[in-house]
Amino acid sequence: MLELADYTFYFLALVTLVGGIAVITAQNPIYSALWLALTMVSVAGVFVSLDAWFVAGVQLIVYAGAVMVLFVMVIMLFDLRRETNAFSRGMVSGFLKLASAGIFLGLIGGSIYNSAETVFAPPPAELEKTADATKALANTLFTKYIFSFEVIGVLLLVIAIGAVTLSRVQGGTHAKHD
């Protein structure tokens, strides 16, 4: 029998895929960004359906709340309107691109069909919910992966400096007046 959790998954999957299709088909970049925000939120829902509450919250804060808002802001600053030629031209190359994406999907689908059930045949182990799972997550992150964590921190610093260097302009409110 299908339970509520199954219907929830199908609903979330539908929203995610409709959002994903709309992202790559919307002619106006601003709609692409808004659809992507919806996709991010429903992916957070998918995480919740997998009992990953904390990651879902972080997905909302980081992706939907910060990264996508940044995208929308930049697009609004550019004042981009509907694009008349949003897609790359060329029938042959377009067909090749579609076909390669289809083959790619088929490859993944085939490998899932053939292997996943055999690798993970046993019924899912119940991860402990919410608070304890969050503690376990923090323990893993700050012991086993502490080195990667530090490296990611340095990377973020580099990225921040790089982004500032790229977008520096002369003048503006923060310019030094001698």
Binding site: W53, G57, L60, I61, G65, A66, V69, T130, A131
Partner: peptide, 15 residues
């Protein structure tokens, strides 16, 4: 009741 209450609230209000 959401176990990670504050994370959820911060996430939702950032929307």
């Amino acid at each position: 009741d959401i176990g990670v209450g504050i994370v959820f609230i911060l996430g939702v209000s950032s929307l």
